[in-house]
Nucleic acid binder design. Sequence first.
RNA 1: GGGUUGAUAGCUCAAUGGUAGAGCAGUACCCUUUUAAGGUAUUGGUUCUGGGUUCGAGUCCCAGUCAACCCA
Length: 505
Amino acid sequence: MEQPNPSSLSSPASPTSPLSELVAVRRQKLQAIRDLGIDPFGGLFESTGTVAEVRDGFEEGRCVSLAGRITAYRDMGKSRFLDLSDMGGRMQVYVNAKEVDETSLAVSAQLDIGDFIGVEGECFTTRTGESSIKVRSLKILSKSLRPLPDKWHGVQDPETRYRQRYLDLIANPSSRAIFLQRSAIVREIRRFLDERGFLEVETPMMQAVPGGAAAEPFKTHHNALGMDFFLRIAPELYLKRLLVAGFPKVFELNRSFRNEGISRRHNPEFTMLEAYWAYADFQLMSVLVEELVCHLAVMLGNKDHQVHHRDGEGNVTKTINLSRPWKRASYNELIEAAVPGWFSFDKAGKIARCAELKLDISHCPEEFEMTQHVFEKLVEEKTIDPCFVTHVPKELVPLARLNDADPSKVDVYELIINGQEISPGYSELNDPDLQRERLEHQAGEEQQKIDTEFLEALEYGMPPAGGIGIGIDRLVMLLTGAESIREVILFPHLKQRIQSASSNT
RNA sequence: GGGUUGAUAGCUCAAUGGUAGAGCAGUACCCUUUUAAGGUAUUGGUUCUGGGUUCGAGUCCCAGUCAACCCA
C-alpha cells in the first residue's frame, strides 16, 4: 500500500480552514489514544452478532459484545450514552464511569461520532424503556478523522450523495433501504430461476463484435492480442450459443454497457437479466416474468400486489397494481384505443393527426415511426399497471421470429410498467439463413458489425426458444419507488471533478 | 446538443444591492437512565471559479465548472 503523504492529509491550501480544525481535533484524540498504548485502528473483534441479532436475543442481564459505528453521543458527565449502529439498526450503549475499566473509560473520553467501537457488557433496560448494553469494556476499532454529515438531516445534496455514496448510506436510512432491497431482489431472482432449472452462466463482457442489441458500444484494447474489443451491449448472442450447446435453460444477470446518453433512466453501465428457455415461446416467457415480478413484490412486503410510490413526505404519489393476470394487448389495438381511426389515415392524415395531438414527429420520416411515436407518447408513457404489448410490427424488432398468422408482426412482447419498458420477451429466431439476412440488412454498409461466429453456431442448430431481458435497475426503481436510476445504482457515473491539491476540501 | 434551476460554515438551511446568520456538529464548563438529551459560554466563511457594473455585490450582468430537472 502506498503510504499517505502526511502533508496531504492536512489542507495545504488553507491550513486554518474550519474543516481542517475539526480534523485536527480528531487527530489530537487519535494521538491521545495512541498515548494510552492503544492502536486506534484495531483488528479482530468477536461480537455476539449484528445489532439486529443482539436485539433479537436481548435478555435482561445477558452478556453480549457488539461492534458498530457511533452515530450519536450523549454525554451526561459521569455517564454517557452512545448509539451504536450498523446496516441493520441502532443499539444504545451506556458507559458509566464506575462500571467500566480504566482503559475503556480513558478511551471513551476520546470518542467522536463516526468512530467504530466494540463493546462488551450486559443487556439492560433503561428507565425510559430502551433496550441497552451496560458497557464493561470498550475497544476502539477505527477512529474517524472527518466529521460525519448532520445526524438529523443527513446528506441532501444529490451530488454528494452520488459522489460519496458512503456518506449517503451512513446518513440516510431511505437510501440504505433501497440498496438492501436491491440486493434482496437480485438474490431472489437467482433463487427463483434456479428453482425452475435455469443455469446461471457468465459470458464475455469483452467482445470482438458487440451484438445482441442496437447500441453504441464502448471500445477498449487488448495489448497482448493487439486487438480492439468492445464492452458488450448485451449477452444475447453468447447465451444463444449455449442453447446451441444444448443447455435448455440459461440466464445471465450482470452488467452491460452502452455508450449513450445519461439520464434519469439511463446509466452507461447497467444490470440486465437475460434468460433463454429452449422449446418455449414469448407467451410462456411472459408468464415467467409475470410470476417473477409478482414474487419479488410480495417478497418486498407488497402482499396485496400494490406497489406505492411516495414523495419526500411519505404521501402516496402513485400506486401500481401488479395483481395477476396482467393485461395483454396487441400493439395496434392499444394505438387504436388511444387514437381512434389511426390506422385508417394515410400518411398525410397521420401527420395532420399528430399536429392536432401536438406530437412532434419531425424526426419520423416513415409511417411506422410516426406510429411508434404515438405509441411511446400516448400508450407507453400512460401505462402504469403492467401491460404486455404483443404483435409488434416487424420493423421495430428486426431480429425476432415472424408471427405465423400475420407475418407483418413478430412474436414478441414488450412489458410496460409505470410508463416505461421493463422487459422485452421473444420467440427467438432460430433459422440461421433468416437470421443472417436480418443481421446483414440491419448492418447495412457496416458488415463488420455482424457476429459471423454466432451465425455459424446457429447453423449447427439452435432449438426454438423463448428469451427475455429485464433491466434490473428499472425493475428496482419500479419496486422501490425510486424516481431516478441513480437512486438504485450505488456509484452512478458523474462527470469527473478536477482534483484539487487538497484532499480536505 | 438546447432550455430551466441551483452551488453560502463539516452537514442542513437563512440573508431588499448596505456589518454574511441560525440549528446540528466542534470546543469549554455543569449534569450518574439520556435518546433530535438538556443548560451556559464559544470557535468556525476565498458566499463554486474568473471577469464586469456599482460608492458598495452572496445578491445584478457575462463567461466557465459541476449538479438536478425538462426537451431532443
